[in-house]
Computed example of a mutant assay.
Amino acid sequence: MIDGTTHGDEPEGGDRLVIFRDMVINDRLCTLRVTVADGMVGITFDAAHTDAEAIVTGSLTGTIVLDDLVPVTRAISATLGGAAEALGLTD
């Protein structure tokens, strides 16, 4: 189950964009953050248990060229969806 909120910030001039989404997925607190600046897109995803210790259970980090954002998004979605399907994890 996913439950969360999305926030965005675009300073004057529009040369930098920060979008982040905090959500709870399967009882884990997760944050997805996308930062766009100088033609590059930085992406981080962190997941942690929601208990007092907040033990990190997953992390992804990467950087791509802005022009590649749409095809890379499609490729990641299709690949992860295919892995979930192969493992029988789809709804």
Rank of each mutant, 00 (worst) to 15 (best):
M1P: 15
M1D: 15
I2Q: 15
D3K: 13
G4D: 04
G4S: 08
G4W: 01
T5Q: 01
T5M: 02
T5V: 14
T5I: 08
T6L: 10
H7P: 03
D9R: 13
E10I: 12
E10W: 11
E10G: 04
E10A: 04
E10P: 01
E12N: 06
G13T: 14
G14T: 10
G14C: 08
D15Y: 11
R16D: 12
R16T: 15
V18E: 05
I19Q: 03
I19Y: 07
F20C: 02
F20Q: 02
F20S: 01
F20P: 00
D22E: 14
M23I: 03
V24N: 11
V24D: 15
V24L: 09
N26Q: 13
D27F: 08
R28W: 10
R28E: 11
R28D: 08
L29F: 00
L29Q: 02
L29N: 03
L29P: 01
C30N: 03
C30A: 04
C30Y: 03
T31Y: 05
T31I: 15
L32K: 00
L32F: 04
V34S: 00
T35Q: 09
T35W: 10
V36C: 10
A37C: 07
D38T: 15
D38I: 12
G39T: 11
M40G: 11
M40L: 13
V41F: 10
V41H: 07
V41I: 08
G42T: 09
I43W: 03
I43N: 00
T44Q: 14
T44N: 12
T44M: 09
F45I: 14
F45T: 15
F45M: 14
D46T: 14
D46S: 12
A48V: 05
A48M: 10
A48T: 02
H49A: 05
H49V: 04
H49K: 06
T50G: 09
T50S: 13
T50A: 08
T50F: 09
D51A: 06
D51I: 13
A52G: 13
A54T: 14
I55F: 13
V56W: 08
V56Y: 08
T57K: 06
G58R: 01
G58L: 04
S59D: 02
S59I: 00
L60E: 15
L60P: 10
T61C: 12
T61D: 14
T61W: 05
G62H: 03
T63A: 09
I64W: 10
I64D: 09
I64Q: 06
V65R: 05
V65Y: 07
V65F: 06
L66N: 06
D67F: 06
L69W: 07
L69P: 05
L69T: 11
V70T: 11
V72T: 07
V72H: 02
V72E: 04
T73S: 11
R74K: 14
R74Q: 13
R74N: 10
A75E: 12
I76N: 05
I76K: 01
S77M: 09
S77G: 13
S77V: 09
A78M: 12
T79P: 05
T79G: 10
L80Q: 08
L80V: 13
L80H: 06
G82N: 04
G82P: 06
G82H: 05
A83V: 15
A83I: 15
A84S: 04
A84K: 03
A84W: 07
A84P: 03
E85N: 12
A86K: 05
A86F: 08
L87I: 03
G88S: 03
G88N: 01
L89S: 00
L89E: 04
L89F: 03
T90G: 05
T90C: 04
T90M: 06
D91H: 13
